[in-house]
């Protein structure tokens, strides 16, 4: 009993002190998370960048720890820049694709589905997040293979001409869906789609019903309501989701090894410079591309209100 009262009064005193000193309270609250993020994460980023000022000994493959800008000189070659462009284009395509696919389902769930159906949707959207990403990617490999599931159905339905047309399209086609950019696009979109649906769903959920009623009362047509009320309120959600889809596509190194024609992506290039070639300095310098691309992207997304809707 005694200890309880003293500890309670001590708690009182502490909380009173904290109340009187908001700065102290702020420091206490923020101290630990910031220590973690700045210390661990920021420190690691700096450690990473520092590696890029080392170089690799050509023959033995060991890292020469004397400071040099040599590695940065190796970074801006045609082939590396084309890797960055290829990856960024894929990330943009995947982001747009996911947004287009995510919107109807989120909209339907929020506007028309009853609470029970909405819960079912929610569970159905969450389940893929829990079933191993790797196993699902490999199952896509089988779905998209030349003698795989999709071709099997297409063949049964006599739709081969459609598929052949898609595969012969320059730039996105290839000998098989699983070895084409089109196939990569499908798999990327599939894998990251839930990360788009969830924030869009959350953003639409926050659109008060009264807005829509007011809009209708004022004589707006459904399309008009959509354009002037729903869409602007959904944008932060889409922007938030797009940070996930864009960043996840940008850094993934597993999908491009399994699906596609072996053309390197940024993640794959970094991974292979580090893990395969043992060239940590060049891998570190290469992270410059995703960091800059993401920096630009975050700047744009922030203006669209993404951080408020994450």
């Amino acid at each position: 009993m005694v200890t309880e009262t003293t500890s309670a009064s001590r708690l009182d005193r502490i909380s009173g002190a904290l109340h009187r000193h908001p700065r102290l309270r702020l420091a206490l609250l923020l101290g630990l998370p910031l220590l973690w993020l700045v210390g661990v994460y920021g420190g690691s980023l700096i450690a990473l960048l520092s590696q890029s000022f080392f170089s690799l000994d050509d023959f033995s493959g060991t890292i020469d720890r004397s400071l040099t800008l040599e590695t940065w000189g190796d970074l801006f070659t045609d082939s590396n820049i084309s890797i960055a462009i290829r990856t960024a284009s894929m990330a943009v395509a995947v982001t747009i694709g996911s947004a287009i696919i995510a919107f109807p389902i989120a909209y339907y769930a929020v506007r028309y589905a009853g609470p029970r159906l909405r819960a079912v949707f929610f569970v159905l959207i969450l389940i893929p997040l829990w079933s191993s990403y790797l196993v699902r990617v490999y199952s896509w490999k089988l779905i998209l293979a030349r003698e795989g599931i999709l071709f099997w159905f297409v063949d049964k339905l006599n739709l081969n001409f459609l598929l052949e047309a898609a595969l012969s399209a320059p730039g996105i086609g290839g000998p098989s869906l699983s070895a084409s950019a089109l196939g990569q696009f499908i798999v990327f979109t599939y894998i990251w789609l839930p990360y788009m649906i969830l924030p869009v769903h959350a953003a639409l959920e926050r659109v008060p019903k009264s807005y829509l009623e007011a809009s209708a009362d004022l004589g707006a047509k459904p399309l008009q309501t959509f354009r002037t009320v729903i869409w602007p309120l959904a944008i932060p959600g889409i922007a938030a989701g797009s940070i996930f889809t864009f960043s996840l596509t940008l850094g993934d190194y597993i999908i491009p090894t399994i699906i596609g024609d072996s053309s390197p992506f940024v993640g794959l290039a970094i991974y292979s410079y580090q893990g395969v070639a043992g060239n940590l300095p060049l891998a570190a310098a290469f992270t410059f591309f995703p960091i800059v691309i993401m920096g630009i992207y975050l700047y744009v997304a922030r203006r669209a209100g993404a951080f408020e809707a994450l």
Partner: peptide, 8 residues
Amino acid sequence: VMLVALVA
């Protein structure tokens, strides 16, 4: 960054 590199 340079300092960390030196230490490393």
